[in-house]
Amino acid sequence: MTEQDALFDYCLRIGDSSLIIGHRLSEWCGHGPILEEDIAIINVSLDLVGQARSVLDYAGKIEGKGRSEDDLAYLRDVAFYRNHLICEQPNGDYGRTIVRQFLFDSFHYLFLNELVNSKDDFFSGYAEKSLKEVIYHMQHSTKWMLRMGDGTEESHRRVQEPLNDLWRFTGEFFAVNEVDKILISNGIAVDLNKIKPKWKQYVREIIEDATLTLPTNDWEQLGGKEGRHTEHLGFILAEMQFLPRAYPDATW
C-alpha cells in the first residue's frame, strides 16, 4: 500500500463515518420526540454531513481520478465504504440514538483533538474547524445520557439496553490497520492508542454519573475500516444513493 492509497483510505474512514451517522440522524427529521430536540439532532446531522463533504472532496483530490465528493458519496457500494460500524446501526428509539451518538461523539472529539496536530495541512485545518461543532455534539449527547440514565426507571432501561448492545462496536474506534501504521509514521494520522485511555475514562465517568452500568463484554466487532459492514449499510446506501443513481445528471 502506497502512502497515497493510505491517505485516500484514511479520508474515507473519516468522511464516511460522518456521512453515515449524519444520514442516520437525518432519519429523525420530522420525527423527533419534541420539536426542540428534532431541530437539535438535525443540526448535528447537518454538521456531520457538512464535515463529510469537505473530507470526501479532499479524498477525491488525493486519489487524483477526478472523482468529486458526490461521486464518492453516491457511487460507491458497501464494500468501498470505510465508516465505523457503529455509525450505520439503526436509530431505534431516541434512547438508542443518544447512546450511539454519545459513544461516537466522545471518540470523535478526542480524535479531532489529536488530528489538529496532523502534519497534513488539510487535516489540521479540518480538525480545528470541526472541533467547534463536535464539542457541542458531545455536550448534547452527554447531557441526554445523564438525564435519561439518571431519570426514570423506563428512561434508564432505554439507555442501558442499547449501551450493552452497542458496546461491541466501540473497540473498532481504536483498531489499527496498515493505513494507520503508514500515516502515523509520517505524522499525518492520529495514534489511536493514545486516545483510547482518555475515551475509556470519559465514558466510564459519564456512565457512572448517569447511574448506568459499564458493559463488561469485551468482544470487539471489527470490519468497517476494511469495508466489511453489517447488513444495515446496504439499506442506507439504497435510500441515500437512489436519486443520483436513477437520475445521474440531476442537479439541485
Binding site: L35, E36, E37, I39, A40, N43, Q139, H140, K143
Partner: peptide
C-alpha cells in the same frame, strides 16, 4: 434552564 438555553441555541 440549561436545556432551555441549549434548545434556544438550536431553535
Amino acid at each position: 434552564q440549561e436545556m432551555a438555553i441549549e434548545n434556544a441555541r438550536d431553535v
